[in-house]
Design a protein around this nucleic acid. Sequence first.
DNA 1: CCTACCGATCGGTAGG
DNA 2: CCTACCGATCGGTAGG
Lengths: 201, 201
Amino acid sequence: MAKIIPTNTRSKKDVVVVAAAALFREKGYPATSMRHIAESLSVEAPSLYNHIDSKKELLELICMRVADEFITNLKQVEATGLTPLEKIERIMRFHIRMMMRDHLSVHVAEHEWRHLEEPAYDRFKTLRNSYRKRVAGILEAGIAENQIAKVDPQVTILTIISAINGIDAWQHSAKNIDAETLEENILSILLNGLSASGSKN
Amino acid sequence: MAKIIPTNTRSKKDVVVVAAAALFREKGYPATSMRHIAESLSVEAPSLYNHIDSKKELLELICMRVADEFITNLKQVEATGLTPLEKIERIMRFHIRMMMRDHLSVHVAEHEWRHLEEPAYDRFKTLRNSYRKRVAGILEAGIAENQIAKVDPQVTILTIISAINGIDAWQHSAKNIDAETLEENILSILLNGLSASGSKN
DNA sequence: CCTACCGATCGGTAGG
DNA sequence: CCTACCGATCGGTAGG
């Protein structure tokens, strides 16, 4: 019988990656040792190397998978015939939902990617810059047709992305905020602003 | 002659703290070694201990000074007779300007404080929670008098703070964004939203 | 300010 | 999956 897919191997590797993501999120990549990861899986550190090659591979897998998901979504949104503002809303909703579904990995990709080593560092940075430029392009199109307020696209993209990334701090919040409240509130603030009048000056 | 103020000692300590802030910002606290800090000052690592007691003291000094500045400003704003929305705007402008003036320390306080050890960890966390609760209180007052849109104060405070914190990424941006553009754009988005209509639904 | 050095911990390998 | 162990690096001290 031909060995087609090493199911067990892949699944155990994923278990290690998930454990690593939780610890990278909690302590940061440099402060997380292979011994910590091993302990959280109730094995000894050297055993991890049966499933992965190195500590940095764990970070690479997490960051690249997140980057792929964001870019895949962006491509889908770009392919629609939606208006620029509708596209921006779709992109924001996707980002928020990614945050809800897998905030550990998204946070790690956002905050720990600087610890990637070449060539992964450069690959990730290029993907990230490309994503931001393309979203900025949508903003510019919306501004050109007076659908989006006259804002600096560079500053706006930074504001939107960091506003959404930052909300994963809701985890530590005493009261549980439900997913829908979170999503509708962030969208309301970013699209309509805090001011009750909602007027432009 | 009485030795009144050990000017040299304090000033050298500050030099070490500033160098540490730059490296904590660049590499993160755990990935920054005392040898890195020493090297950036062209001395050997053990020499640093003539001016400071430990690595963790450096982080504590940075985090506590930032916390103090934010809370001092909040107290001043609370003591005015401004409307809630005006208070929120003042708080946001102060935060943005802190970011421009000392983004290294503000970033370190925001992202590295989790590496503080007790009792500093708990002290900082308490200050941070208190700050957020008091700003949330201003938001609630503004909502109650229909000056601020009906948003969840918890989610809003998270959104505002992380939106502003995140913009220190402008440093790595190719084009230099001037301070005023940055401040007015972020305020415009958070107060009036992205939508050109600026209408509420 | 330096050299010399400490015990602890790191990522990872050898070998089974 | 384990035990045993490696060279490198860590924060910090002794002593001058």
